[in-house]
Design a protein around this nucleic acid. Sequence first.
DNA 1: AACTAGTTCAACCGCGTCGCT
DNA 2: CAGCGACGCGGTTGAACTAGT
Length: 531
Amino acid sequence: MPNGGEEKRKTKTRRESSGDEDGNIAGKCDAASALKKGPWTSAEDAILMEYVTTHGEGNWNAVQRHSGLSRCGKSCRLRWANHLRPDLKKGAFSPEEEGLIIELHAKMGNKWARMAAELPGRTDNEIKNYWNTRIKRLLRAGLPIYPPDVCSKVLEGNYETQCMDRNETTGGDPVQKDHREIPELVFKNFKINRGVLSYLPNLLDVPGSNILKQDGFGSSNNYGFMLPTLPPPKRIRTATEDSIFRDVVDVGGVIGLPTPFSQLTTDYAASERTPDPFGLSSPYDSSDVNFTSYDGQPPLAALSGSHAFLNDDSSSSEPISGAMKLELPSLQYTDTHQLDSWAAMTPTASPLLPVESVDTNTLIQSPPPMTEPPQSLGCLSPRSSGLLEAVLYESLTLTNMNCSANDQASVAVSMEHQLPYNSRKRDWGMQADPISPLGHSAASVFSVCTPMSGSSSDEPGCEMKQEMGSQVSSPYGEEKQTPAGTDCMQIEFSRPDVLLGSGSYFGLSYGGCLEKGEPTATTQTDAAGGG
DNA sequence: AACTAGTTCAACCGCGTCGCT
DNA sequence: CAGCGACGCGGTTGAACTAGT
């Protein structure tokens, strides 16, 4: 499916070859040297091939110098890696490969290179293209990105491996936790946050049901966070839909409709009153939520949450808006049937605040270490895993928020006891975050600071503790006091307008509950975007 | 046959990281 | 430790192609 073709490729190449002389000159690699850009010709390929076979890979800039190629080293490397490497596997992805890609993406997010390493003969670019194409199609059809079996695999796999990992790295000593694994991601710098969010009240004038339609939210420029907008299908293409459906079934091995995560529900949340595949129980029963209330818009929870910035490497430190883009494509639903299926996995119907609307320069900061890293939480650290884990993590986080801010010692314990994996009863109606986990999702777990605030944790604004019980932006632009120690999630989350306007959601709520112990100086990123 | 919208894929671009000096 | 170059990665773009009308 993915590549429509070698044939096409050949045709294109042929054309390119013929148009060699017209190739545009100049380039970013080295504008001064007028390096050629654009499609490679077969002659160039030959030169590059010859050079690499004699000199080996690496030192790509030398290729240009020594081979006479008018291509920058970067371009040479790309060409070699993506097209000329002898071990490249050409042609469409096999079903096995497709399945693997899906699984890997569920685990690691947009780590194309890492995924490529798991797929011999495949390039990151290829995988990326495949995924993006696939995502587009699935979203267009309103289907879940991950087949249920993949979800369960990832969940199980990570739960086990990460716990094992943790035990190894910490020697089982909960005190000596491995900071790489602990999801020390909380909102910091609340004062700054409040500033950042200060214009949110503007949004509050827009009814929740409509806000998502506002320019800027639905625009392509803003699709990054939770409201990516793919153009609605202008015509229904039966063949395409069929194909999509086939993909879901074939690749996933499990029919994703109408309840794509039923399997997970069974596995992990059987005892819960609401399907809770990711431990993402909504405060609502899905039956209580009218997902069509937003003018027929689907719940805009972004399941795909955000590998990019949940993953543990540098790319995670990008400003949220950037990081989220590809991973949170639009979720569009065409019928209530699909809504139902999504309702199970993305329980929130809350309109979500696009990160862009907050501040594209926001930073993700490492939270202060928790008094005692809940083991399970550590196992689900978004920093060490992908989307699904992130979702789980957030679920845990949200759950944990219920704990009294004063009862710091209970944090770890309560979180442990609120794992989605166990069947411990949770009163989501009172406690959980309706905005959801999936909506703000992983993003909401993170600290959001303006760069100018600095990532220094010793700034007063970064002291989450101080903020416990501090102001909460009301949906109406006012601020109200939330008594410290009270259930921070008792804000009126059931109200979309509150959710939208509640900068406090980002700051206070999370911080109030998560922030325990010393602020950490560790930052996920620096002001420059992480370097 | 012409037009249009959607898809695919190669290549580019910007940025982060690493290693060397 | 700063500066620099090389390299790698992920996101985006644009042209070619395909399919539907």
